[in-house]
Nucleic acid binder design. Structure first.
Lengths: 237, 237
DNA sequence: CGTTCTGTTGACCCACTTCAAGGGTAGTGG
DNA sequence: CCACTACCCTTGAAGTGGGTCAACAGAACG
């Protein structure tokens, strides 16, 4: 079950090497507050669950996941972040999750004390947290109530902009409702995000392929042949 | 599977009757901002998923759950709120969940426009949201990675104050580590919170009883015989 | 051209769901 | 006070979706 027998998360999974970030100078909603911009390599850890929380982070470019580990090594990826998302808030003095990059990533880092002071930051914070909450609510439905196929379909649909949501406009063009997407995640990471095993994810993907819903160019390069029919499989229609 | 075949959430489950709230005049962190205090009966709906979001709510007394429904009637309870928690933030113009009381409840209601203006409210908001996020993260682990026994054990442990967390102090008294608790939830509600069926919840509870870990006085009145041994069953030790 | 890592596929198994029946308990009304 | 009803909960028997175990295929890399 456990894909590695980690007993001490801080010593870390072999797939995640803590790279020393390289600082750059991009702009964002943090930059006016003396935030430092930092670059991270793929699969490097920004912080570990249990580390003392000192900084707040804003993802500027790339992709970051937050995950928690159970003592026996079971892992749950609780969030997959996109540019604009904020992470590192714990509500205590320790981070409640490990933050690890999925791609090369650019991150703005700001001292928590700075955040305390600024009204403007508090404001962006609460809107940002509200959005993340809504995503977490929907993910709870996925984890608690959806079948394996529905989970994978929902996962793929989330990667298609402006489709599958409440205000879904339908296909631009009836006859060619396709979409290309790049996953940036291994099967293991997808499985840990969807509450499944790597084998089940692989099987579902193969099944979708067999049924002509998707085309798999490379393991992480997938073409959706018909977005609408995939959307029908999410359990939400 | 579906315990009722709701197709339109707004027309509503038979177990939830929208009661007109009775207003009172309690105090809270909202009261300085012209918030109205309202009383709700047990199992009454504060708002439905999809309703236009106009107000923000603060739970003062009692218990409220937030849930989402899939079109075929599957339900996932995404949060169980306690006094002090804030709800009603959607990050859009519609509520993303239905809010329903589990007990008689007292709620402070405040206009969203008010919240926009006040820096102080924004501040309490972001700390409150941060705490709820941490709870949601942990619940994602439960839904995605824990067995039925671990889920029920975790659920019960969350109802024991100051135990089972990171800073768990252990039993006050080695030899009598018991605790009485009142659930305020039906088996169906617990099942929908834990991502299980009502039968599985019932079976697990019976099993814990048989093993002498708990004593069931009434369906919703449970005595934990040994908190520590229950804690060992949460998957987190 | 081996080595290593990731992904795929098959066979089997089991934890949980589904289906079905029955028991408890609270509320209601005669 | 008891019968009737309506939930809610429990328990059993059977079915199944996804997990586990194991073998292998493909790509990446030195």
């Amino acid at each position: 079950m456990a894909y590695f027998d980690a007993s001490n998360p801080s010593q870390g999974a072999s797939f995640a090497h803590s790279a020393a970030p390289v600082f750059s100078s991009e702009t964002s909603s943090f930059s006016a507050f003396g935030a430092k911009a930092a670059q991270y390599d793929t699969h490097s850890v920004v912080y570990y669950e249990g580390d003392p929380s000192k900084r707040l982070y804003e993802l500027v470019k790339g992709s970051v996941m937050l995950y928690k580990l159970l003592p026996d090594g079971r892992r749950q990826v609780v969030e997959v972040l996109r540019p604009g998302d904020i992470f590192g808030l714990a509500g205590g003095d320790e981070y409640d999750c490990t933050a690890e990059t999925l791609t090369e990533a650019e991150v703005n880092e700001i001292d928590l004390k700075q955040v305390e002071r600024s009204n403007e930051l508090q404001r962006t914070l609460s809107t940002c947290l509200t959005n993340q909450m809504r995503v977490l609510h929907e993910h709870a439905v996925l984890l608690g109530r959806k079948s394996a196929v529905e989970r994978v379909a929902s996962f793929l649909m989330h990667l298609v902009p402006a489709r599958g949501g409440i205000g879904c406009v339908g296909p631009d063009n009836e006859e060619q409702d396709g979409f290309d997407l790049h996953l940036h995640m291994t099967r293991q990471e997808i499985a840990d995000y969807l509450g499944l095993t790597i084998e089940t994810v692989s099987r579902v993907v193969s099944d979708l392929k067999r049924r002509g819903v998707i085309r798999v160019d490379k393991a992480d390069k997938i073409h959706l042949n018909k977005v609408c029919s995939l959307c029908q499989m999410t359990g939400m229609h």
